[in-house]
Design a binder for these strands. Structure first.
Lengths: 342, 342
DNA sequence: CTGCAGAATTAAAACGTTATAAATCCTTCA
DNA sequence: TGAAGGATTTATAACGTTTTAATTCTGCAG
């Protein structure tokens, strides 16, 4: 003869244990068990121990749906995934950093596609309105990013990859792109390069301004000719960037130094050199920011600065946990400094 | 004077509408509203229309937590993310394909890290035991993959990227790696190459056997010398692969053809050529499988076969939806064919 | 009219949790 | 001995949904 779930559970059979199971097993009420597991000081220490032991023994794990329904907290963190553009390996490293930090915290990570054609705010609105997450992470932050504005209005926890120019503080993690650009320019200047150029990301991104400022001011300080490659951005089709860089090499005064913000651009620049018969290290040098070990296996070797996106993901996830736990936003930011060019 | 939530909702204020709100608004009961939204034929057609209109007007969206608690279905699909190894851009493309297919289906995608050091089954067990998802996607499938075995035993919906050698059918999506290897070998042979080599993935993966078989049998058919590079796999540190390939070039009879399964290996092979003074196209040729447009900007240009991982992600997500909707597993598989080498 | 089948709707319970308010138990002190 | 009062514990409601088992309504045959 078989019994209903309470007894079946008592007998340790397949049924997933619930608070009710623990209550049966320990002889306490469901309410006490719930409080005991939450380490509520109103529950006797001995009771807490008993309950904890039973929970451990039966492998009790709270039901996410029930908890979420009751508390309104989702235990979910969402990541906006830009579907179009991609540094090589960016997503993988970044996501790995995030998920590995969140493992064991009870939070799960959901990925929401962020299609460039669509309204950039739509996924954020959906998350807010339908209460789909407790916190949000995203990249490609703009100087006056509408997502940041909306999230701050709603007082919804988030961490942006990249800073904004809003006056109110909010949590962010960023890489010191100005310092990178300065170091790259200084490195090229030290090699005797006198005509350097750079392809920038779109003007809307905050880090574009940082890059530009670092590039321009370091080049001025070094007294060398410098140019932002016109007509293309990092997000242009690589064929367009390739065309622009190749055209420049056919001009009267081709550049002898390239600052590349991403790996793809660096490869394009290398290809432009090769395709026009120029030799890297002789006719020109390239300094690139890299997020993967790919350049270890690219010939000729170029000098690079590593941006650790796994660490970035980890920092963002940790910061979001802090924010959700109530840490004040002005204390939550972190600027990663570049290593020396190598 | 303010009212409680029902009336507030009636007045269209901020509160998120629930079934109760719709019931108030339409004058029907909660039960009827629920059924009407589910298009239950027992509800009068006119009623269904009324309710649908009200839901539309108020922007009603069912609460995931409540539905999940009641039905036991999570509306979540999980992806096991391998944290260590990465084809360039693999994760990004794959994940984009998955999330973009699932948008609008009501399913959300959670990413679960799959640390190579840990028990490979642990994340799967957690998902099963805690009912964290309705379906599962994963890659790097092994011939007798324990995850597949466990999931089949539990009758839990999943789609593997790659086949297994279990007799019972299960849903999978794969790329015809045997055909790729054959085509690559034929391509090299047609170029007059007589000593070809290949770095394989680990022996445990099913696709390794496909690659080996295609490689070996095509080379035999062409009557050329062929070798699996010993001592390293695709998952070895790139420095180790580089060392092996470089060493081979210093041997008495260096290879004149390389079949590369991933982009990184192809770059390593190119670097090994460059580092030993060999010239691609003269001393040796490389054929590689690629998953990104990176080789458009690598010089020298090598011949490649494109594996569309975004399409793979889409196919897997669609197939999982089918499986969860009850389609029989034996109908759910798809083998992507390689384009000609180019 | 009455009765009854079928159509349409609904009350109520349940999923597993947390939180409010109330109840019980103990200890201590007059 | 009897309250007072703190320490513990508990009954119960609620979160929003689906579903079982009624209930009400409608039209039609007898």
């Amino acid at each position: 003869m078989t019994h209903d779930s309470p007894l079946a559970a008592l007998h340790g059979q397949g049924e997933r244990p619930t608070l009710r199971t623990l209550a049966h097993v320990t002889g306490f009420s469901v309410a006490t068990v719930s409080r005991a597991l939450a380490d509520d000081p109103r529950i006797a220490v001995k009771t807490r121990a008993t309950v904890a032991a039973a929970a451990e023994r039966l492998g009790y794990i709270p039901d996410r749906a029930a908890r979420r329904l009751r508390t309104g907290r989702t235990q979910v963190i969402s990541l906006l995934l830009n579907t179009e553009h991609e540094f090589l390996g960016f997503t993988h490293e970044f996501l790995t950093g995030i998920t590995e930090t969140l493992v064991g915290t009870g939070y799960s990570v959901t990925v929401v596609p962020d299609q460039p054609g669509d309204d950039r705010l739509a996924p954020v609105r959906t998350i807010l309105r339908n209460n789909l997450a407790d916190g949000l992470l995203f990249t490609r932050t703009e100087a006056f990013d509408p997502r940041v504005r909306l999230l701050m209005e709603a007082d919804f926890p988030f961490v942006s990859h990249g800073r904004t120019e809003f006056s109110a503080p909010h949590p962010w993690v960023d890489f010191d792109n100005e310092a990178f650009a300065r170091a790259a320019v200084a490195h090229l200047a030290a090699k005797g390069r006198r005509r350097i150029c750079m392809v920038l990301p779109g003007d809307q991104f905050t880090f574009t301004q940082h890059l530009r400022y670092g590039f321009v001011s370091a080049a001025r300080a070094a007294g060398i000719y410098h140019e932002i490659v016109p007509g293309v951005t990092l997000d242009s089709p690589t064929a367009a960037i390739a065309a622009a860089l190749t055209a420049a090499r056919h001009g009267p005064n081709p550049p002898d130094g390239y600052v590349c913000v991403g790996e793809v651009t660096a490869l394009v620049a290398l290809a432009a050199l090769a395709d026009t018969g120029a030799v890297h290290g002789i006719d020109a040098d390239i300094v690139a920011k890299r997020a993967s070990p790919i350049f270890d296996n690219i010939r000729p070797r170029i000098d690079t600065v590593f941006e650790d996106l796994r660490a970035t993901g980890r920092a963002m996830a940790e910061m979001l946990l802090g924010r959700m736990a109530g840490a004040p936003p002005e204390t939550l930011n972190r600027l990663f400094q570049p290593d020396p060019v190598a």
